[in-house]
């Protein structure tokens, strides 16, 4: 397999993977008590490992996919994830230079808070507690844990 074919194959694999991930997010994770956003975690993970371009593409495509089954306008989820990606790309250059546990936890927590705040703002405001309910506590705990897990796996392989 030459490099061109390899690239096409990897793109197709990534798209299929993201579609499966979106299906799992919409039909498996959303109805369950595990309130996590897989695409937010992936975007934050890619930003932390300095894969900025894939992070931006994933933010857009992932947002489009989960936006299919969202109460907000089609594209709002993409916009939220794109803004978050941009914020953390800029912040990672200045603040989160090293992958310490403290920075990972901070990225995870602030990522979740930014996501909910932006969704609240971009969907016309309304009751803030609708976006900051009990589910967010689980998300605030699980997102940094998931980030730490993926990053430790990445560091071990590096």
């Amino acid at each position: 397999m030459n490099s061109r074919n390899k690239k096409i194959f990897s793109i197709i694999s990534a798209v299929v993977f993201l579609i499966i991930l979106a299906g799992i997010q919409i039909s498996f994770i959303n109805p369950s008590f595990i309130k996590i956003n897989l695409f937010l975690i992936l975007v934050l993970y890619l930003v932390l490992i300095k894969q900025n371009k894939p992070a931006i593409i994933l933010a857009w495509f992932g947002g489009i996919l989960i936006g299919i089954n969202s109460f907000s306008n089609f594209g709002v989820n993409s916009l939220v994830l794109l803004i978050i990606a941009a914020i953390f790309i800029v912040l990672s250059k200045t603040t989160f230079l090293n992958l310490t546990t403290k920075s990972i936890v901070l990225v995870g927590i602030s990522g979740v808070l930014f996501y909910h705040l932006l969704t609240w703002a971009l969907t016309g405001g309304g009751n803030l507690f609708y976006f900051f309910n009990n589910g967010i506590l689980v998300e605030l705990i699980l997102t940094p844990i998931a980030l730490k897990f993926f990053l430790s796996f990445k560091i071990r392989n590096a």
């Binding site: 979106a22 299906g23 039909s27 498996f28 299919i68």
Partner: peptide, 15 residues
């Protein structure tokens, strides 16, 4: 939505 629906059905059943 059409592309996602089979995965959603499988995920939903598994869930």
């Amino acid at each position: 939505g059409g592309i996602l629906s089979p995965i959603e059905i499988i995920s939903n059943r598994a869930g």
